[in-house]
């Protein structure tokens, strides 16, 4: 009867105010993520960043797509939108252009942003829309039960690569950089402090910023590949991640259980879409007046 007693004891603990009450929808906790999942850590980092920056939460919008990470929008107590698979970025683009005062954060997974939403990702980066993208990369489609993702490292097993993955994985920072993102960083869910810092920087930077968060999927990716529990993955990140700021993005490929290079890779200036649009409007108005 041990387990039961524990349950009873838990019930007796009086509810206390949680420090994240203002930023998280506490009425929706418990969340759906499995034990050992890294998405919660990414959310924590994001929440910490919001609190550190002291931003007006009313002006922040979180947009998510579909998938495990897609559920983030549902837990953050700002205006939040849970949209269709891969289309978080265009939805966010519309939000931003509809009301330029908003600060938009797209919080979604690797499958959502790089696979089905790859095109929107490229073009939002090219336009340099003022959005922060937090992409949680767990190397797999977890919500649907562990299928191969474009980020799955070579020779890793998944349910749709039952004989080992043979495709070359996507290098998300490089994709972002080559499409025109102005801020690109990558951390694992172990690097909480640095991740928080990166989120702050990306949030405050005008233009398209992208922060990739390498995160364990203890339920599918680790289990199929026999990598142990979430904690084992964390240990692995601890031993195998190397911080190299400013590393050329082409060196950022991730092999199966190989070294992971983390850091801030791109921080540059490009005119944002809104600036260009304003300039264009002015020009048109002058031309119209003249004619």
């Amino acid at each position: 009867m041990k387990a039961l007693e524990a349950v009873e004891k838990q019930e007796e603990i009086p509810p206390t105010e949680h420090p994240m009450d203002d930023v998280l929808r506490m009425d929706r906790i418990p969340h759906i993520w499995c034990p050992g999942c890294g998405i919660g850590l990414a959310v924590t980092a994001f929440v910490n960043a919001l609190e550190k920056m002291q931003v007006d939460l009313d002006k922040v919008c979180v947009v998510s797509g579909i998938g495990c990470t897609g559920r983030v929008a549902g837990y953050i107590k700002t205006d939040s939108f849970h949209t269709t698979h891969g289309r978080a970025l265009p939805f966010a683009t519309g939000l931003k252009l509809g009301n330029p005062d908003l600060k938009i954060v797209v919080f979604s997974g690797d499958g959502d942003i790089v696979s089905i939403g790859g095109n929107h990702f490229i073009h939002a980066a090219r336009r340099n829309i003022d959005i922060l993208v937090i992409c949680v990369n767990n190397f797999i489609y977890a919500m649907t039960g562990g299928q191969v993702a474009p980020t799955t490292p070579r020779s890793a097993y998944t349910t749709t690569s039952p004989f080992g993955n043979f495709e070359t994985p996507s290098n998300i920072p490089q994709l972002a950089e080559s499409a025109g993102a102005v801020y690109v960083a990558r951390w694992t869910s172990l690097h909480m402090r640095r991740l928080t810092q990166s989120i702050i920087e990306g949030f405050q930077k005008p233009g398209f910023s992208m922060v990739e968060v390498i995160s364990p999927c203890a339920m599918y990716y680790s289990r199929i590949n026999k990598l142990g529990l979430g904690i084992d993955m964390m240990k692995f990140y601890h031993d195998n991640s190397v911080i190299k700021h400013g590393e050329p993005t082409e060196n950022l490929d991730i092999g199966f259980q190989s070294q992971i290079i983390v850091g801030k890779f791109v921080d540059r200036e490009r005119p944002t879409f809104s600036e260009l649009y304003k300039g264009w409007k002015k020009e048109v108005k002058t031309v119209k007046r003249e004619s």
Binding site: I32, W33, C34, A142, M143, M219
Partner: peptide
Amino acid sequence: FGPEARGG
């Protein structure tokens, strides 16, 4: 079953 892999 629900959407959760664990716990639902």
